[in-house]
Amino acid sequence: MPEQPSATSELEALRPARKDRVIDLVRAAGLDVSDWSNSSRGEAGAATNPKYCYEWVFVEAGNAIVLNLWHVLLAEDAEGRIVHRGNFREDAEIQYARGRGNPWGLRATRLDAALQAALRDDLAVRVILNAGVRRDRDDPDAEASKVELRTLDPEPWSIGAYDAATGKHLLIRGAAPPAFVDQFSIDSDPGGASVRSEQTGSVFVRNPKVREAVLKRSCGRCEHCDEPGFRRADGAIYLETHHIVPLHEGGPDLIGNVIALCPNDHREAHYGEAAAALRLRFIAIVAVA
């Protein structure tokens, strides 16, 4: 009996098999490309308009962004998702430092700005996948990349995590990933009979934007022990946010004073004999996060 061929993985199946025109792919992603014809060659030269065809990101306000990504840089994570991890801002800084800010540094800067716009304005994310000869970013003498194959991924992508301070990102193929939640996200009254009692005293109000930013920064992993948070029944990833210098001691409710922890490390930070040492360790961790 002849040997059966092995099943092609989803990641392998995504590798482009043809080279489509950029203008056609951007149009297929739902962006308006009418301005491409505004050149000396008019409609006939739209597809090769240098203002657009050499770019690696396209943004339409209120609609979507379209990113060009190298297929070779995609990976399949432990959860079976196809992801792209990187840092476009860091890429740009390296190119500028080498005197190659134009065009490579500019393109990387625009990629980073597009991710920020997508997060800020809740824009859809589409991806053009590229294959060919990719320039080694870390080789200062490398030749320019050459795209040999190019297609639009039919699936939308989402921004799983983005660190505004550093530019580090996680892009995930598919719909928006489950939200990151902490102990303050849990509904205190899920329904059903309950007994309420009146309490008096002061309560510190925590800024939800700070907690959200810290949870995204963590990418779903404890920022102390690096263990992943557990997944709740609704798909959300659970960690606990902790003020390193407590609010009642005058600690600020700012990103730089909050860390995402697994429940075990969080309890130890409050009640363990090593609590003072952990506080110093947390300060050091957040300082470089």
Rank of each mutant, 00 (worst) to 15 (best):
N264M: 05
E3F: 09
L278P: 07
P154I: 04
A161P: 06
S202C: 11
A78H: 11
S145I: 03
A61S: 14
A29R: 00
P228V: 08
A233K: 14
G220N: 05
P177W: 06
K216V: 11
P208R: 02
S37K: 13
S9T: 15
D187Y: 01
V147H: 00
T8A: 10
A144Q: 05
E10Y: 00
V72K: 14
S202N: 15
A118Y: 02
Y52F: 15
F230R: 15
V57N: 06
A64E: 01
P16A: 00
L149N: 06
T151M: 06
L123E: 08
N68F: 10
G272W: 12
I172W: 02
L278R: 13
R137N: 07
G101H: 05
G250Y: 14
T8V: 15
N207G: 08
Q95R: 15
F180G: 06
P140Y: 02
G192V: 00
L31T: 03
W70E: 03
E55A: 14
W56H: 01
L254G: 07
A44N: 07
G105D: 04
A276N: 11
A108N: 14
E93W: 07
R81M: 07
R150G: 02
E268V: 15
L239K: 02
N49W: 03
P5K: 13
V66K: 02
V125W: 01
R137A: 07
A284F: 05
P246Y: 10
R279E: 11
L247D: 05
S9G: 13
D121A: 06
W157H: 01
V133N: 01
R279M: 10
E268M: 13
A275V: 13
S197G: 14
G235V: 12
L31R: 01
R89H: 11
P140V: 01
R120H: 11
D182Q: 01
G101D: 04
I172G: 00
A276M: 09
G272D: 12
G192D: 01
E3I: 13
V83N: 01
F230C: 11
E212N: 10
V22T: 11
R196V: 15
R150P: 03
S40T: 15
D112H: 13
E227K: 10
P156N: 05
V245N: 03
T200N: 09
G201S: 09
D139R: 05
R135V: 08
S194F: 12
A47Y: 10
V214M: 01
T166G: 08
I94S: 07
A61F: 09
A17D: 10
L74I: 12
R211W: 07
V22Q: 05
D141T: 04
L129C: 00
A260T: 00
D139T: 10
Q4N: 04
L115A: 05
W56F: 00
E273K: 13
L152P: 04
R41V: 12
H242G: 07
L171N: 01
A113V: 01
